[in-house]
Lab assay of single mutants.
Amino acid sequence: NKEKKVFISLVGSRGLGCSISSGPIQKPGIFISHVKPGSLSAEVGLEIGDQIVEVNGVDFSNLDHKEAVNVLKSSRSLTISIVAAAGRE
């Protein structure tokens, strides 16, 4: 599966507009579980089932849900590497 990078700058009070969840035991990782229509996440093409592999240089493969949320909230400017639809297989 091809990795792609998206860049998101949080402007004003707009949030990311997506929710994440941890994958099942047999498929660990952090996946996008919800994308709000019209949100920044939707605008850059994030979709439900995409796996987040890295954010701002932080490897997401071994993070738990709480740590992942903290990384996503730690910066107003995010570089997110995803594997599209990895969670839909």
Rank of each mutant, 00 (worst) to 15 (best):
S13T: 14
K66S: 13
A84G: 12
G17T: 01
C18L: 15
R14E: 14
I32D: 02
G17L: 02
E54D: 13
L16I: 09
I82L: 15
K2W: 05
S77W: 06
I52S: 01
K36A: 12
E89G: 12
G49E: 03
I32V: 11
K2V: 04
I52C: 03
I32C: 03
L46G: 00
S13P: 12
G38K: 12
S9Y: 07
K5I: 08
I8V: 07
L16K: 01
G23P: 04
S41V: 06
F7L: 09
V55Q: 01
K66E: 15
L46E: 04
G49S: 01
Q51H: 06
T79Y: 09
V83P: 04
S81R: 15
G49I: 01
A86G: 11
I20C: 02
S61F: 08
K5Y: 03
G29P: 03
I52N: 00
I25Q: 11
S19Q: 13
K2R: 08
S39L: 00
R88G: 12
A42K: 07
I32Y: 02
F31V: 05
V83W: 10
L16Y: 02
Q51E: 08
N62R: 13
K36M: 12
E3N: 14
I80R: 03
V83M: 11
I32S: 02
V58I: 13
E43I: 05
F60Y: 07
I20Q: 00
K4W: 04
G38H: 10
G87E: 14
K36D: 11
T79P: 03
K2H: 02
A85W: 07
S41M: 05
K66M: 12
F60T: 05
G17P: 01
L63M: 05
G17Q: 04
G49V: 00
S77Y: 12
L40V: 13
R76V: 09
V35W: 03
P24R: 07
G23R: 06
V44R: 10
A42D: 15
G87T: 12
G23T: 06
K4L: 04
S39I: 04
Q51C: 05
G17D: 07
I25D: 12
N1S: 15
G45F: 00
V35R: 00
P28I: 01
I48T: 12
R14L: 06
S39P: 03
S22E: 14
G38V: 03
E3W: 06
I48H: 09
G49M: 02
F60A: 05
S19D: 10
G12D: 07
K5P: 00
G87Q: 12
S81T: 15
F7H: 12
E89T: 13
G45P: 00
S77H: 14
C18F: 11
N70H: 15
H34E: 14
G38Y: 08
E3F: 15
D50V: 02
G15P: 12
G49A: 03
S77M: 09
G49R: 00
I80Y: 04
D50M: 05
T79K: 13
R14D: 13
L40K: 15
I52Y: 00
N70Y: 15
P28V: 03
S77E: 15
V71F: 05
I48A: 15
R76M: 08
L46F: 10
R76T: 14
P28A: 07
E89W: 09
E54F: 05
K36E: 15
T79F: 07
F31I: 03
S81H: 11
L63S: 07
I82T: 12
G45L: 00
I25H: 14
G29F: 01
S33N: 10
L78W: 05
V55K: 01
V44G: 06
G87L: 10
A85P: 13
P28L: 03
L78N: 04
L40D: 05
P24C: 11
H65P: 01
V83C: 09
S22D: 08
F31M: 05
A42W: 12
D50E: 03
I80P: 03
S39R: 01
N56K: 05
N62F: 08
E43S: 11
K5E: 06
I48S: 12
G29T: 01
D50H: 03
V83F: 09
D50I: 01
G23S: 08
A84N: 11
K5F: 05
G49Q: 00
I82C: 15
L10S: 05
D50K: 01
I48L: 09
G38S: 07
I25W: 09
N62Y: 11
V58L: 09
G17C: 05
V55H: 00
L78A: 05
S21W: 06
K4S: 07
T79I: 07
V35N: 00
L46N: 05
E3P: 08
A85V: 08
I20E: 00
K27D: 11
V53I: 12
S33E: 08
S61Y: 06
S22I: 09
K36T: 15
I48N: 09
E43G: 10
A84C: 13
S21H: 11
S74A: 10
H34S: 12
S21V: 12
E89H: 12
N62D: 13
E89A: 11
I30K: 07
I80T: 04
E54L: 03
L46C: 05
A84R: 15
V44Y: 15
G17M: 01
S13D: 14
R14K: 13
K4Y: 11
R88T: 13
F7Q: 00
I48P: 14
G45M: 02
N62E: 12
L16R: 00
R76N: 12
S74P: 15
I20F: 07
F31E: 00
S21Y: 11
G23W: 05
S19N: 10
G45R: 02
G49K: 01
A85K: 12
S75T: 09
A84F: 04
A42M: 08
K66R: 14
V83A: 10
